[in-house]
Amino acid sequence: MSGDNGTGNPEALRAEIRQTRAELGETVQALAAKADVKARIKGSAAQTRERVLQRAGQTTTTVRSTVHDAGSVALRNPVPWAVIAAGALALTIVVLVVRGRRG
């Protein structure tokens, strides 16, 4: 039995074996990563956490902007707020008068 395995070029065969071993090592690493469920769940949880934090930040910015805009409108046009306050006061007076008549 010859050392060249019938190819006639032992060095080429060794190079092919080295390449196959490297590819096999990469395949084994990829399969091990897929089989590591705990690490995959942690990675997925971290991604979800980052998405939630990013969306929360965007929502906070939107709410702040909306509140600021509403406050600006109220300061520029205080009449509607005065009407609402007067209506609430009138309702309170009516409720107190009705209760006073019952008692």
Rank of each mutant, 00 (worst) to 15 (best):
S2F: 06
T59P: 00
A32F: 02
G6F: 03
L13Q: 08
K34N: 10
Q29Y: 05
L13H: 01
R55A: 15
R51D: 12
K42S: 14
P10A: 05
A39V: 07
W81I: 07
T61L: 05
R64Y: 02
A85F: 09
E16Y: 02
T61D: 14
Q29I: 03
T60V: 02
D4L: 04
I17M: 10
D4R: 04
A33L: 06
K38T: 14
Q58W: 01
N9S: 04
Q54G: 06
T61K: 08
A82I: 10
P78S: 05
N77V: 05
K34P: 01
V37N: 01
E16S: 13
T27C: 11
S72K: 08
N9W: 03
R51L: 11
L13I: 10
Q58V: 07
A70K: 02
A12V: 08
A15S: 12
V94P: 00
K38Y: 12
Q47Y: 07
A82Y: 06
V73E: 09
D36S: 08
T59G: 00
A32Q: 14
V37Q: 09
K38C: 04
K38A: 15
R49K: 12
G3A: 10
D69M: 03
P80N: 04
V67M: 07
V94Y: 05
L96T: 13
T27W: 06
T20V: 15
R49N: 09
A33D: 13
Q19E: 15
R76D: 13
I93M: 10
N77S: 07
R18N: 13
N5F: 15
T20Q: 14
R76V: 03
T59S: 09
T92V: 09
L13C: 02
A85K: 06
G57H: 05
A35P: 00
R40Y: 03
A30F: 11
T59V: 10
V63F: 07
S72A: 11
A15C: 01
A82D: 11
S65N: 02
Q58M: 10
Q54L: 08
V67R: 04
V67A: 06
L31W: 07
L13Y: 02
R64Q: 08
V52D: 02
T61E: 15
A22I: 05
S65R: 01
T62K: 06
V52E: 07
A22C: 01
G103H: 06
T20E: 15
R51Y: 07
T61I: 00
I17L: 14
A33Q: 12
T27M: 12
A22V: 05
V52G: 01
W81H: 07
G87P: 00
